[in-house]
Nucleic acid binder design. Structure first.
Lengths: 200, 200, 200, 200
DNA sequence: AATGAATGAGGTTTCATTCAT
DNA sequence: TATGAATGAAACCTCATTCAT
């Protein structure tokens, strides 16, 4: 029964990753114990090791999965939108509409992962790969906008794109400190305005 | 001779904080052991506990000190500069001229601290206080620029200032991942351009 | 069809014991996991527990089987030999001709078992029973040799026999450390010479 | 206060090794937990790690120490004895007079160590070095005996010496199984007789 | 004030065994 | 009968903190 078993295992892996995300997001990587994850999921410590080889393995696979999902989901939404501007605006909108409590936790998780991975060659490479996907996602839009004439030809899409993500991350980081939703929304809006002023 | 003693203690505290920064920056908070710090400084574990009550105490005081120094140093430099634009440009320049290996380590330290503190009420408050100082530092310039007519009256200095720092942090974060100096400089320059386009 | 089933089970038990021997011999008792044995055999962990009640059960039955086989095999060979001296010489020859890599692994297995069993009453008893068989095997030859006049009447067959096995084990143990075949063979020869000098 | 501290540490190291020997001898290497050793000594787990880097480190240093002590002690005793025969007889006598309960435990420890080390290159090398010391100890006596004319010139001292230790170990191993003191003594005596018959 | 040995809670990982399928 | 996911008790080792010297 390989098919059933494999599907089951895949599902279970996903469930464990969900639980792990909850823990990592609220307590951090080092602050999360395998026991925490097991308890969160109502399973045994040993069960986790049936699906993952180590705590770090869970952490890495979790990030990989989330990045892939994010990129795929954006791509899907972009497909239905008519113009580069519309796509970009959609991206901003999505940041704003994100449930904020989620945001806090996820930001924490992503930032912590970035820092953690910056001390480890292998994870660094993984992050580079994933980051490139995110870059491509937006850079394509800018390029499209330039081609169609929506955006100025002079802007460098690599730089703008990088700035886009950098600012998004920076705002999220600030939200992490301040915790004020109004301000977060205001900054995203401000960034949007500044970016469009620059692009057109 | 209480005066001498107090001065001595203050100096020693500073020395310990220096050593601790080296450790925290390269190995992270959790990755740094008290032994690491002691070894780095060539003193004993016990000595550290004479000056600080806990590992977290060191971490907090270290951040406090660095923030104060940074703000004070900027203030001092700003005093000699003629206009709001000049001041803002100076700030950008300073980011670019920062020794990059330092930057990597320090960014790591600051980001990690931010995340760490976001899980702890008391540290959160400390960070808020410190962040406010950084905000004021730049917001005053924007306000000055608006008053003098260098910048548009419509810009909201709080928002712009927050964006300024957010983007700076975001760029630093990205640099942490990519490690490419060219790109880092390019992004800072891009951000500068975008900001001035927005302000004037 | 109980007969078929029983035969099948018996055969399977034997197969599992073979695989277990490979594992125990190369990784030791504690170093061998049930998973190792299962993998070695290409079966599941559960299957092993159908035939044996525990890891120790496998260990014990394996030793029991090997001892019985060894004694039976010697007995068979002895039957064709004309004199006590010839039998004894055959025994020495067999030690020497044993494939040495096998020897290393098997010695390890046997010694480890002996030590392991010395901490457990039940296993101790088993080992005593088995050891007695080995003793009888040789003691009979000595007795035969004394009766026929090949060996001196004064020698005590129990003592000589025990010494015979003890020396064999000691040499094997030494070979375990040194790993030099020449030396191993030399020692067996030396022991043979010493023993015959004593017996005749 | 380096001198005091170093002496203190050395002493403590010795104390821990004593306690560890008790544990290893009665429960085996794998069967002994660090907690066992700590409890045996009435100290904390952590304290042990102040003096040793790992469980294996304890095990190795313990063996090293015991071997050195044994060789040194024999050498000292041999110095007062007039002839090669006397020295050899003394060695046998010492085996016999050894407190038997000790013997059981120590034999177990030594044999287990030998097996354990046979699966580890580094430990193997250590054992080789130690074994060589034991070999030299006896080989010198045999050589001396040959020179003085006490022993036959034809005997090969390396072989005889190896056999000497091999048999000693084999007898000890058997004693481990049987646990009968009479028999142990008998075997040692038998071995002595056989050896002298061979040497003279 | 400084030292560093000692403590012991707590973390990750392993693995013999069970049991639903 | 066979499977292998699940369990959970241990095991080793680390390290912040204390305290006698």
């Amino acid at each position: 029964m390989p098919k059933v078993t494999e599907a089951y295992k895949e599902k279970k892996r996903g469930v464990i990753l969900e639980g792990a995300l909850d823990c990592f997001a609220s307590k951090g990587y080092q602050g999360t114990t395998i026991d925490d994850i097991a308890q969160e999921l109502g399973i045994s410590k040993g069960a986790i090791y049936t699906y993952f080889t180590s705590k770090e393995d869970i952490y890495i696979q979790l990030m990989e999965k989330r990045m892939n999902q994010m990129v795929k989901s954006f791509h899907k939404s972009f497909a239905h939108l008519p113009s580069a501007s519309a796509k970009l605006k959609y991206a901003f909108q999505r940041f704003i509409e994100q449930p904020l409590e989620d945001l806090r936790r996820l930001v924490r998780f992503h930032l912590e992962f970035t820092i953690h991975s910056s001390r480890n060659e292998e994870m660094q490479a993984l992050m580079d790969r994933n980051f490139q996907k995110a870059i491509d996602l937006i850079a394509e839009i800018i390029a499209e906008g330039k081609q169609v004439g929506e955006f100025r030809k002079e802007v460098d899409e690599q730089t703008v794109t990088s700035l886009f993500w950098a600012t998004r991350d920076g705002i999220a980081l600030q939200y992490l400190s301040s915790g004020e939703k109004e301000q977060f929304t205001g900054l995203i809006k401000g960034m949007e305005e500044m970016l469009f002023r620059y692009l057109v």
